[in-house]
Amino acid sequence: MSRALRFAALGDSLTEGVGDPVGETWRGWAALLAPALGPGELAVEFRNFAVSGAQTRDVLERQAPDALAFAPDVVSVVVGVNDTLRCTFDIHAVAARLDTVYREFTARGAVLLTACLPDPGAMLGLPGALARPLARRQRAVNAVVHALSERYGAVHLHAAHDAWVADRAMWSADRLHPGERGHRMLAARFHARLEAVGHEVGPSPSVEPEQAPPTRSAGLFWLATAGTGWVVRRCADLLPQLLTLAAHEVRHRARGTSVALDLRSARAVAAALASVSGAASAGEVVGAA
C-alpha cells in the first residue's frame, strides 16, 4: 500500500477555520480541501498547524518546524493579515520570513499553496482615513506573497479583489472571516488551481453550504459584543500609530499628494524583495500590488 498523501496547513485564523463551525470546533477551507487532494483511492493525512492571531513570525518559528517534521507533500501558507494590524509591521521582515518558509518546504519537494487576501480595514468598514493605511499594508503583503509565490512555483490563489469579497453571504458574522460558504469557495478554488496547473487530484469539494449564512442582525450583534473586544485585542498596540498614519493620510489627500504614500510603499516592497534571494524587479512588485 502506498503512503498516504500528507497535507499540512499553516497560517492564522482563516486557515484554522474560524467562521466555519462544526460542533465545538472550527473546520475551514483547508480541512474541506484535504480529502479532495488524493486522486483515486489515495488516502490523505491532514494536519492543521494554523493558530488564530498568528503572524509571519509565528509561522516561521513555531508552525514550520512541526510541519517540516510531518514531511508534507502539499503545504499551504496563508498568513500576513495579522502582521498589518501591529505597530511592529515591517514589510522587510515579512518578506524575509515568507521567503524562508517557502524555500524550506519547496526544497523538500512539497507543493506550495499561497493566497492574496483582502484588507481588514475594508472588511470592517473603517472610515477611509483609517482604512487606507491598512489597505496599503495589505497590498504590500500581497505583493510580496505574489512575487515569492511566482519565485517558488507556488499554486497561488488571487482572492484579494474578487467578487466574493463584496458578497455578504460568503462571510461570517464577524465580517473578517469567511462563513461556511466562503470557506467552501476557497477550498474549491484551490482545487481548481491545482487541476489547472496539472496536479492530479480527486473530485472537487462541494460548494453547497450545510447551514444558512449569518443574518445582518447577527453581524451587528457580533460587532456590538464580541467584535468590540476582538478589535481592541487585535489593534490596541496599533491604534496610536494608526491614528498617526490616518493624520498623514488626511494631510496628503488635502495636498493632492496621496500618490507619494503609494510610491513609498511600492519602493519598500521592492527593497524587501531585493533583500531576499533572487531579487525581484520593482516593476514586477508594483504590478503585483
Rank of each mutant, 00 (worst) to 15 (best):
H191M: 07
Y102P: 00
L126Y: 09
A159S: 11
R181H: 09
L117Q: 10
L273A: 09
A43H: 01
G109T: 04
S204H: 02
R137Q: 07
G153F: 06
D58S: 11
R234N: 15
Q241D: 09
A289S: 13
A166H: 13
A163S: 15
L194K: 08
S265V: 13
A280G: 01
A122E: 14
V111W: 05
S76Y: 02
R57I: 06
A166K: 13
M170N: 01
A212Y: 00
A4G: 05
Q63Y: 09
A36F: 01
P209F: 05
S13H: 08
P133S: 10
A147N: 06
V79F: 05
R234M: 10
C87V: 07
Y102S: 08
R103F: 00
D174S: 10
A135D: 14
P214S: 13
G219F: 07
R3D: 15
L261I: 06
T100H: 12
L32G: 00
G109V: 06
C116H: 07
E180S: 02
R181A: 13
E16V: 03
D237Y: 03
F89L: 00
D20S: 08
G128R: 14
A274D: 11
P214K: 15
R139D: 12
M123Y: 00
A270N: 05
R193F: 02
G128P: 02
V94H: 15
D262M: 03
A30N: 07
R264M: 04
A226Q: 15
R253N: 13
R132I: 01
W230A: 15
F46T: 05
S281M: 09
H92S: 13
V207T: 14
Q241F: 03
R27E: 11
A212R: 13
R234Y: 02
C116A: 15
R139C: 04
F89M: 00
G229Q: 13
C235L: 14
E45Y: 03
R97Y: 02
E249N: 10
A64F: 05
P178K: 10
T257C: 03
T257G: 04
